[in-house]
Design a protein around this nucleic acid. Structure first.
Lengths: 224, 224
DNA sequence: AATATACTTTTTATTGAAAATCTATTTTCT
DNA sequence: AGAAAATAGATTTTCAATAAAAAGTATATT
């Protein structure tokens, strides 16, 4: 095995979290996780410590770890920030990006467009989720700022968690494929203002969709 | 003891790191740290894991932990990002902030202005460093966005590390006290554009000062 | 019936030592 | 001499046992 156990445990746990395998505020019992991943509690603890620093997990001293909570307020705040950062990245990438970057964007879009959005059970397919994340990452990549990309990654991770919560709603009511295509086209055409405006609208729509899903879920819970 | 051992260890280690107690790229030996803080390797490991997620420490699997490197390129990138985020926070804070916030800004400035900048050995005094950090934090506080503040904190932490590297240079050549006072005045007067422009200049000057110090240090190393 | 108290169980926190891995040095061979 | 291999030493990683704390449960008390 190349990487260490703690490293792989961290990655696996993070992936599970982003895939929505655990519900928000659910308690993450160290020994259970250890059993599930078949590593010692030490490794789990270390992974959880890192996830805590990322904000994906909250730690209460002497009281263990929980999945970070979600809320509509946080989603809105997160999206505001994402719009700031993603558009800033996009502007800089369009200004700085070379042909290699352009090619990567086109490639990532092609893969995204060719990947079926829905899995058998009606939720987002994992392949689509991956391709979608990669496409957005590809757009930002040439921004030339390590710090911007780092913050972008952090925000994306948190957004992915929300995306997953909304994975059974509203799909198809919006033409996400078209939004992505237009975003790609404007970017490759180096039409900065158009690309930024599409991106802003795209992120806003995503927020609205998730918000609706969260409200629907809350209403369901209310009427249990 | 109120908090847990891992928690306090994390905080202590982080403070040491921000205070520049360990040099960039210095190896952080787990057992040594354990002896220094008199806790077990597990606690150290957990603290280091969190610091790794924050980017203050780098982890090489099977090869331990090191203090994150510094570079002029990173400083520039960091400062660019800081200017983006700090000004965005400031704009929003000036728009949203209530009297309580205004009061906190004035108070933080008063403390900063009244704290001697230099310690006996000529470096920044810890009290000044603290007051300085608090003043800048106070300015941003009312921005109304948790995410923005979170990112701001992250960037500030990294900046503090750089500040410390420059702590023996150039102090006095610039009138930081005046910059701070003008920043406070423009903010309290709700003069957004003026405050933003002072902030931008302030962060830029800080970067230049640190850059000069880094170059000087590199030259010294060259000619060892 | 509601609250308080003592007891039990579960879970977290912490430790130190064993196992695995790396680094530097020495030795061997071409 | 220079490269490859072996060895020894140091360090990291992992683990499982112990201690401490919190949560839960049942019993007693007001």
């Amino acid at each position: 095995m190349s990487a260490s156990a703690t490293q792989t445990t961290y990655e696996r746990l993070r992936a599970s979290l982003l895939a929505g395998l655990y519900r928000p505020e659910e308690k993450l019992k160290i020994s259970e996780l250890g059993a599930a991943f078949s590593v010692s509690t030490g490794a789990i603890r270390e992974a959880l410590a890192r996830l805590t620093a990322e904000g994906l997990v909250t730690a209460l001293p002497q009281r263990g770890f929980r999945v970070a909570p979600v809320s509509i307020a946080d989603l809105r705040d997160l999206t505001d920030m994402r719009i700031e950062v993603e558009t800033k990245c996009l502007r800089r990438a369009i200004a700085n990006g070379d042909l290699g970057w352009e090619t990567a964007v086109v490639a990532a879009h092609h893969r995204l467009a060719a990947t079926p959005i829905a899995a058998d059970d009606g939720s987002f397919s994992p392949a689509w989720t991956l391709a979608h994340g990669d496409f957005h990452a590809a757009l930002a990549q040439a921004c030339g700022s390590t710090w911007m990309l780092r913050v972008r990654d952090l925000l994306s991770a948190h957004n992915e968690r929300y995306l997953d919560l909304a994975r059974k709603t509203d799909r198809g009511k919006r033409d996400a494929a078209r939004e992505h295509r237009e975003l790609m086209e404007a970017t490759v055409a180096r039409d900065t203002e158009r690309a930024v405006s599409i991106m802003t609208a795209h992120l806003g729509k995503t927020r609205d969709t998730i918000e609706a899903a969260l409200l629907a879920a809350a209403a369901m819970n209310e009427a249990r």
